[in-house]
Amino acid sequence: MYEFSYVKPASLDEAAQLLANHDDAKPLSGGMTLIPTLKQRLAQPSHLIDIAALTELRGIEVTAGQLIIGAATRHIEVATSMTVRTALPALAALASTIGDPQVRNRGTLGGSVANNDPNADYPAAVLALGATVHTQRRAIAADDFFQGVFTTAIEEGELITRIAFPLPTRAAYAKFPHPASGFAMTGVFVAETGGRVRVAVTGAGPGVFRWREAEAALADRFAAESIEALVVDPSGLNADIHAPAEYRANLMKVLASRALRAILNSSEGAVA
């Protein structure tokens, strides 16, 4: 690692001030992507601003039909929270499949969403549920938030404070994890909220995206057979040593079908 200065601010305001004062400062939350990146000398921040313990970024609550989770909430807390498991079991199930236990004990919701790794799990939930990403400055709709590989609407010095998930009527996430990292080779989150169906795909393309054809097909008939009838064009999907684009195109259908079967076979509508 290159040298940096570690700072632990006492408040969100102080954290924002530190980020504003130092152009090359980076916020540190769980550090599950940032620290490995620093170890490989792929980044050289001047300061790390540790926001993980800020009380403004913590907490899980259900209010006015929304599940609101603080940005510094760790994956293990989302996975095991009775509030989440009751209100939005598909999200708790998703969190329980992120990485491995050591990663889930450190990594945070806000860190994952801000990083927007194209293979990360949480962005699929945020997009499919039509969640709102709150920062210390504004509220950003999920449809405007994710802007491609490791790119979001977040501006310099802006910090995610919490994410508000509208509670769906039914929802499920199904993923094909990379066997070594646990990241989604492909993951599909299906949600019906307020009578509207949204389907978000992670891992398959250059950043999370909505699968509009699947949404239309499911609006017509909410069944796995609707997905199985679709044809997925692999052009533009990811291809790497782990899987060619055609494989990921097929995974989209397989996983969307699994998510639907989980929803339709379960009163809770959750699947890992």
């Binding site: 570690y6 550090g31 620290i35 170890k39 236990p101 004990n105």
Partner: peptide, 24 residues
């Protein structure tokens, strides 16, 4: 940060000690 050989308990929870800064 993949192998887990450095796993310890931090306040009772498993973490990879190679992926936590001492100052944290």
């Amino acid at each position: 940060s993949q192998c887990g050989a450095c796993t310890v308990h931090l306040d009772g929870r498993v973490v990879k000690s190679c992926t936590v800064l001492a100052v944290q």
